[in-house]
Design a protein around this nucleic acid. Structure first.
Length: 203
DNA sequence: CATGGGATTGACT
DNA sequence: GTCAATCCCATGC
């Protein structure tokens, strides 16, 4: 019996709803790019109604992807050095996205090690700039369709179906710091930071 | 056209 | 704990 084919990628309608819900539902899902993949263990939600979101300034060249159709990648350069990967959410015309902040490596670990220049498994994808480097995601992937690939996000594997989710304040921002819109797989060794989280009530 | 500010990381004290 | 690297883009003159 051959290995099962990978699950089909998440469809546009998965992303076309409340960005804070999508941020939680993406925990445990799998990001894959050209044979390299990992399980999402940390996310943050951003919405144009709050000032920490790039889309807060309105429609510009930079934010066009955020206001575009859901299910696309929003990739931008941070601090002049790192490419950060988001999944665009909500309906077209609303600027919202989920920042993918950390992965638990699954496939292509040796490729990740070579690209990252680090050996420890926990150092490969435990941060938003680290995981794009490990996956080979670049600015040119901005606007790419996450349903058709080559960069795709797949549903939770069976073992991740019941993952416990923690929440806390978003990291590295100076505005709207009070919103608890950072989510992580409870107890994961692969998140970017360990502190500042609490259990999500009722989930 | 000049300026300033980051959704970070890694090296160093 | 501190701090520099580095570049895209929004803003203002």
């Amino acid at each position: 019996m051959a290995l099962a084919a990978p699950a089909p990628a998440l469809k546009r309608r998965f992303y076309a709803r409340d960005v804070v819900e999508v941020a939680q539902d993406l925990i445990g899902c799998v990001v894959a790019h050209e044979g390299v993949s990992g399980v999402i263990v940390e996310t943050e939600a951003y919405h144009d109604c709050e000032p920490a979101c790039h889309a807060f300034v309105g429609l510009t060249a930079r934010t066009a992807t955020l206001f575009g159709p859901p299910g696309r990648a929003y990739v931008y350069r941070s601090y002049g050095i790192h490419a950060l990967l988001n999944a665009v959410c909500e309906l077209e015309g609303i600027g919202a996205a989920v920042l993918i902040r950390a992965l638990e490596p699954v496939d292509g670990v040796e490729t990740m090690r070579a690209r990252r220049g680090h050996d420890r498994l926990e150092d490969l994808c435990s941060g938003p700039g680290k995981l794009t480097q490990a996956l080979g995601v670049e600015l040119a992937d901005n606007g790419a369709d996450l349903e058709t690939g080559p960069l795709v996000i797949r549903p939770r594997p069976r073992a991740w179906r019941e993952v416990a989710i923690a929440c806390g304040p978003r990291i590295g921002i100076t505005k709207a710091v009070e919103l608890p819109w950072r989510f992580s797989a409870a107890g994961s060794r692969f998140v970017s930071r360990r502190s500042g989280v609490a259990a999500v009530p009722g989930r």
